[in-house]
Design a protein around this nucleic acid. Sequence first.
DNA 1: TGTACATCAGTGAACGCGCGTTCACTGATGTAC
DNA 2: TGTACATCAGTGAACGCGCGTTCACTGATGTAC
Lengths: 206, 206
Amino acid sequence: MRKSKAETAKTREKIVSIASEAIRKRGIEATGVAEIMAAAGLTHGGFYRHFDSKEKLVAEALATSRKDFVAGVLEAAQQGPEAVLEQFRDYATPGHRDDIGAGCPLAANGSEIVRADAATRHRATEGFRTIFETAAPFMRADSDAAKTETAISLLTNMIGALTIARMVDDPKLSKKILDVTRRRIEKEIAIQPAKSRKKRAPEAIA
Amino acid sequence: MRKSKAETAKTREKIVSIASEAIRKRGIEATGVAEIMAAAGLTHGGFYRHFDSKEKLVAEALATSRKDFVAGVLEAAQQGPEAVLEQFRDYATPGHRDDIGAGCPLAANGSEIVRADAATRHRATEGFRTIFETAAPFMRADSDAAKTETAISLLTNMIGALTIARMVDDPKLSKKILDVTRRRIEKEIAIQPAKSRKKRAPEAIA
DNA sequence: TGTACATCAGTGAACGCGCGTTCACTGATGTAC
DNA sequence: TGTACATCAGTGAACGCGCGTTCACTGATGTAC
């Protein structure tokens, strides 16, 4: 029953991909090895041909979703402010809210990552840093420092808002949370930097 | 070994209190019945004299932390804008960040509550609603609707920021996240409503 | 107020269950000659 | 290129473990008279 190297690599990728989605959907602890293997069309015994432990798979699955997410922001940044605005606006939509398995891992597993091992927290930190540093130049603020701070504020807001929008059981309130968040995104991102630069009062820089 | 009614009530309260802290510290799933009972100085067998199931205890523990938290906001609102500002500012501090067991349950268990049962999500929703409705009148905005929206935006920001501040493994970045969040809190809460009302551009109301 | 009985908070052993992990085995793939 | 052997992806049963829960039991509390 041995498989070719190409097939083995494909299977491994498939397991990571399924785990990445399942972990965001159901949480880290609630996602079982057997469940992931079954979803990949395999039995659980073969799991350890690909990974040393569940912990290793979780780390890899989180790394995958983080990379996907960071890549989207980097790509938008290369395309310009409009693309960044669109990318950020998409974050605070019912579509993203309802597709938790394919969405932002920080919003999907936020309070679980807080309690995760050092390596996971470190990777999450660097992912978050890459995103706010990439987004900062597109913020409406008067200095590089203020732009970075605006990016941090906006991103933490987006993550919190998406989490709460998923938590509340009142569809109207959930929609309102997303609407309010999109409005802030539009306010903070400078589409025509020169034109509206002076709209906001300059902020003290720490 | 039967205990008096007063003692029984006290024990029950103690279990809920310990669970409330443990759940915020270690998460809902990771908190075990035996662990809580041991912390209360009891053996796990007696648990079911007080609660039908772990699920019931979790619901009650979350309800307790929510009530404590809501009560703090209601009290501050009665005392006036300065108290609200102080309450909110305290939210985004290293003290709150490091005392997760006594802090905001939405920040501590956010992504877990998203996946919780309907009753838990409903109670969390109403808790969140009470807080933003209570806080809204203290926001710097030109209409009641805009104040409500500002309160929603600010609160989701605070929850997200606290979660991320706890997640990152870089103390400098964690501090910066809290600093930036406090600055936004100070910006959005109207200490002298008449004086600074016009600082922000009026926002469209949905 | 005192007595007899019912109640029930708490104990500690045991249960069933699902989890992550291990293992002997199978048979196709990879490799050495 | 063909052959013989080593490798190893995947199977499915089994393992140990910790979890939530149950249960027979104890003995102090509560209650009925």
